[in-house]
Design a protein around this nucleic acid. Structure first.
Length: 562
RNA sequence: CGGGGCGUAGCGCAGCCCGGUUAGCGCACCUGCCUUGGGAGCAGGGGGUCGGUGGUUCAAAUCCACUCGCCCCGACCA
């Protein structure tokens, strides 16, 4: 491709609204433009990258036996009503009416429609298993689109769905997807982890996410370098490091006007880990008293799995239920249901004295309070691995893919049943599996860039090689670069040639910004000695090679990089 | 949805607090000359509903009210 025939609007300056690296570079290098909040145009270079990613996706999906199909993006509401998600999902779903007044929605995902199809067409166990996938646009009215193409309202997703006769079949397809995802992300040149995740609204028991570490990510994961435990903090367990038992006598301490753990801990000069954070929460069953250690954060999802949805108690409720105002409440002497985090099993602690302006020192579990023990805290840096007790790390990640075991969550309401070998009618056992191609592109940039621009992994770069003739008015330069272009193309490489009548500086800057993995530079000076230069974008290493050897050397060096 | 910030030329910004000729700067763009190994130089030029609406005023980019849009933090995130 000739640079002069491609629309590549590079920018020297960055639009001020772009914060994250991938967004800035994609704008500057002419890959994308923003239409509105959460809506992006993919320009020729950006679209080439997405297509290369999608090609990898298709190859690997086909290799595992999945079949590509295409589904409508506009859906009738009835199917979504049958599974209940028409009502469960609120503003995030784009809804509209057709001309007859019929309720419709735009697809945020395709469990309903895929299951509808399976329900309609599949009768017998002989037709199973099936894996259907598509690479198509999804629409979600996101509460907050952000970080360029990382969180948008319209985006392409590779989503696949498996239908099996039993759990073993699902297990097999789930593993198959996990293996395929590893191959895909590896081919795309990404660093990533497969982590345990929260099945959330998808239902079902098991879910994993594929996470690419990057400061631009929205998720935190816990990982243990020693035993390999990895999990999203949404579900991660951890062991809070034990405190030394302070061994205090049980006594009240005057703490005038000091209410929060931070205030009291500073006032007394004692670390927050020696405090019990006492929280009064209102669940459906009534008030629940929850205790965590002063240096811990309550993990609301873990708690709501135990007590259901809850809210914090109002000031008046605290006063009327416990007889003391918030800030001075302690776990001693209440008849309410009490839950506590495991960290409080051992040790001696300080908490509210249930008396205004006083705290109590020397509180011990089982002596002064007797709770149900649970894991209620959010894992954080400094905690220990729940599997092997080594120190854990926390890393920010971009979610690039996920896999869910759905079971019968969709097949039951949509009546996707088949007749099994034993003559029994049974619901299909389903799984669903997603990958965000644009997120792969963004994550690849986040993990591969320098001050000058993007450094694409070669599998997903918009071109394999960029030829840079410095002076296009020099006949020798043009003759050699043209024949090089033709020969490399004939060898199956995607080549970009910067045939613009621009100064060398401009071409160098643009080529570094755009980030094609290998550059071949033809300058008049070197050409006098019949030499050209081959530059590896990632390392900026430049090698002078003789013109007669250029095709062979270029391919050789190209094959050696990743 | 809560909190914060920002809307002035394609991009980056100044001007606004303290109202007053023709709204300015850098980059980009157009023409010519010149130059050609890391976003050159000189000369000339084009481009603006100052986000929108309403108000205050002799006079509004500037003050007031409302509104729209975009970004960031949080909540949310099949």
């Amino acid at each position: 491709m000739r640079f002069s025939n491609l629309f590549i609007p590079t920018m020297r300056e960055v639009p001020s609204e772009a914060e994250v690296v991938s967004h800035r570079l994609m704008l500057r290098a002419g890959y994308v433009r923003q239409l509105a909040s959460g809506l992006y145009i993919f320009l020729p270079l950006g679209w080439r990258v997405l297509n290369r990613i999608n090609k990898i996706l298709k190859e690997e999906m086909e290799a595992m036996g999945a079949q590509e199909i295409s589904m409508p993006i506009l859906h009738p509401s009835e199917i979504w009503q049958q599974t209940g998600r028409w009502y469960e999902i609120k503003d995030e779903m784009f809804r509209l009416k057709d001309r007859t007044g019929r309720d419709m929605c735009l697809g945020m995902t395709h469990e309903e429609i895929m299951t509808w199809l399976a329900a309609k067409e599949i009768r017998s166990y002989r037709q199973l298993p099936q894996i259907w996938y598509q690479i198509q646009t999804k629409l979600r009215d996101e509460a907050r689109p952000k970080s360029g193409i990382l969180r948008t309202r319209e985006f392409i997703m590779k989503d696949s769905y498996s239908f099996d006769i039993d759990e073993q079949g699902l297990e097999k397809n789930y593993k198959l997807h996990a293996d395929t995802y590893h191959k895909i992300f590896k081919r795309c040149g990404l660093n990533f982890y497969q982590v345990e995740s929260d099945p959330g609204m998808m239902g079902g028991a098991t879910a994993h996410e594929f996470m690419a570490p990057s400061p631009a990510g929205e998720d935190d994961i816990v990982l243990c370098n020693k035993c390999g435990y990895v999990a999203n903090v949404e579900v991660a367990r951890s062991v809070s490091q034990a405190t030394k038992d302070a061994g205090w006598e049980y006594e009240e301490v005057h703490t005038p006007q000091k209410r929060t753990v931070k205030e009291v801990s500073e006032f007394l000069g004692i670390e927050s880990a020696y405090f019990i954070k006492s929280l009064l929460l209102m669940a459906a069953e009534g008030p629940v008293f929850v205790l965590i250690r002063g240096d811990q954060e309550l993990h609301e999802k873990k708690l709501s799995k135990i007590i259901g949805p809850f809210r914090t108690a109002l000031k008046e409720e605290v006063l009327s239920l416990l007889g003391v105002s918030a800030g001075f409440i302690g776990p001693m002497g209440h008849k309410l249901r009490i839950l506590a985090d495991h960290a409080l099993k051992e040790g001696t602690y300080i908490s509210g004295a249930n008396k205004i302006d006083f705290h109590t020192k020397g509180i011990k579990a089982r002596v002064h309070f007797n709770p149900e023990w649970h894991d209620l805290h959010t894992a954080k840096k400094g905690d220990l691995c729940p599997e092997c007790n080594a120190l854990i790390n926390i890393e920010k990640c971009i979610e690039i893919g996920n896999i869910f075991k759905l079971g019968t969550k969709y097949s039951l309401p949509l009546n996707a049943v088949f007749l099994d070998r034993d003559g029994q009618e049974k619901p299909m056992i389903m799984g669903s599996y997603g990958i965000g191609p644009a997120r792969i592109a963004a994550a690849a940039i986040e993990q591969n860039y320098d001050n000058d621009g993007i450094i694409w992994p070669k599998s997903i770069a918009p071109f394999d090689i960029e030829i840079i003739p410095l002076n296009i008015n020099d006949k020798k330069t043009i003759d050699i670069s043209t024949s090089l272009y033709e020969m490399l193309s004939a060898n199956g490489l995607d080549v970009l040639i910067d045939d613009r009548d621009e100064r060398p500086g401009v071409k160098f800057k643009d080529s570094d910004l755009i980030g094609v993995p290998l550059h071949v530079i033809l300058g008049e000076k070197a050409l006098k000695d019949d030499m050209v230069e081959i530059k590896v974008r990632r390392t900026k290493e430049t090698k002078r090679v003789p013109v007669f050897d250029i095709v062979k050397k270029t391919i050789e060096i190209f094959n050696a990089i990743y």
